[in-house]
Amino acid sequence: MVVFKQGGIQMSKYQFLDSYTLKNGAEVKNRIVMAPMTEMSSFENGIVTNDEIEYYRRRSGGVGMEITGCANVSEIGKGFEGELSVANDSVLPQLSKLAQSMKSNGTKAILQIFNAGRMTTSEILRGKKPVSASAIRAERPGSEEPASMSEEEILETISDFGNATRRAILSGFDGVEIHGANTYLIQQFFSPNSNQRDDKWGGDLKSRMNFPLEVIKKVMNVVKESGKSKFIVGYRISPEEIETPGIQLSETLEFVSKLSTSGIDYLHVSMGDVWRTSLNDKSDTEPINKQIKQALGDEIPLMVVGNVETPVDAEKAANSFEFVAMGRELIREPNWVEKVIAGDETSIKYKLSPTDLEDLAIPAPLWGFLTTVFRPIAGLSTEKDPATSFKEAAAPWEKF
């Protein structure tokens, strides 16, 4: 942080306010990103609601990039009710309005695309059975045994990600983020827990990389064919799993080395704390993000997220990583960046109040989520012990 005086007033210039030019030539006006957060507010068919459009508009303009909550690329990939969809052309009119609402004052609009895989239910899929890399049930309450995907289904799903990218381009988005994290389908193919195939799509580490790398290749080809050279392609990962077997950090670091030459424009690491160390190896005290940064090299920027609320938090992260994503704090304070730029940091809000609902344009389903499961995390008062509440909410919060 650089401190200077302007008109006799001491001002602060943070590194995270600097612009950043991606390798494809797209310039991002600053290094603060609105993280992808589930708001469960789309119509049943996945079409964007006006409430969602207003929610994203309220938070655009200050941040350099704004990433939507996850949008399913096919009907069989739907993970929860109220989920955004990019599975067919009927979504395009409202999707276009959403893209435009996110692009105010030069903010880059990024559509996160995903398939839930086994992290859904036959009820949500209206009677259809969930699918995954292998017919292995997730180790979570209420999960169902999925069907193992056939070769044809795998190739069709890869095409679904390409078609979703085409729709994002047609809708006016500045980019897509491929969601390879949070236990969803792409991660399920990478994980030895959920992928126990014996064909080219599974088995050893190299084969488990094939599906995510083919998804990236398809997305990149669609972008190339569109002629949109500055269209941004990001990729999100979760670096470890606690299941046995499960993804180990050493495997992720090998995968990251492959991702560094895949053509993506940034890598986004999904964790609850920017500075978290290994969950599986307590003797490893080096922050995971620093290890990933080393494996990634300097060609591709790293986006980090987790427990970033104050300008001091953001600047600390920006000293080590290129992009700093913020989630719950931008729900509470849509004008976070604008207030920092104006030197008005003392007015930044760090708590939610029911009286703020209308001003913050929080859709009713999201408000219900925040005021029940996520009271302590959202900065709301709670009668429960905060530590207990946080522990109970930790897994669902990964959606944010």
Rank of each mutant, 00 (worst) to 15 (best):
S101K: 15
S101P: 14
M102R: 15
K103D: 05
S104Y: 12
S104C: 12
G106H: 08
T107N: 13
K108A: 15
A109T: 07
I110Y: 12
L111E: 10
L111Y: 05
L111P: 08
L111V: 11
Q112M: 11
I113L: 12
F114W: 12
N115S: 13
N115F: 04
A116F: 08
G117F: 00
G117A: 01
R118C: 11
R118F: 03
M119K: 08
T121L: 02
S122L: 00
I124V: 14
I124C: 04
L125S: 00
R126E: 00
V131L: 06
A133V: 04
S134R: 01
A135C: 10
A135D: 12
I136Y: 11
I136C: 04
I136P: 03
A138G: 04
A138Y: 14
S143P: 01
E144I: 01
E145M: 05
E145S: 07
P146I: 00
P146Y: 00
P146C: 02
A147K: 01
S148Q: 10
S150R: 02
S150E: 13
E152N: 05
E153R: 00
L155T: 09
L155V: 03
E156D: 14
E156G: 11
E156R: 00
I158M: 10
I158E: 03
I158T: 06
S159P: 13
S159A: 15
N163M: 15
N163G: 14
T165Y: 08
T165M: 08
L170F: 11
F173A: 13
D174P: 03
G175A: 10
V176W: 04
I178K: 06
G180A: 14
N182G: 07
N182S: 09
T183G: 09
T183W: 00
T183N: 11
I186R: 05
I186S: 05
I186W: 13
Q187G: 02
Q188N: 11
F189V: 01
S191C: 11
S191G: 12
N193I: 06
N195F: 06
N195P: 07
Q196R: 13
R197M: 07
D198K: 14
D198A: 10
W201N: 08
G203W: 00
D204M: 14
L205Y: 10
N210R: 14
N210L: 14
N210I: 11
F211I: 04
P212T: 10
E214R: 00
E214P: 06
V215H: 10
K217T: 07
N221K: 15
N221M: 07
K224L: 07
K224Y: 09
S226V: 04
K228A: 12
S229V: 09
S229I: 09
K230G: 02
F231E: 03
F231V: 10
I232G: 12
I232P: 06
I232R: 06
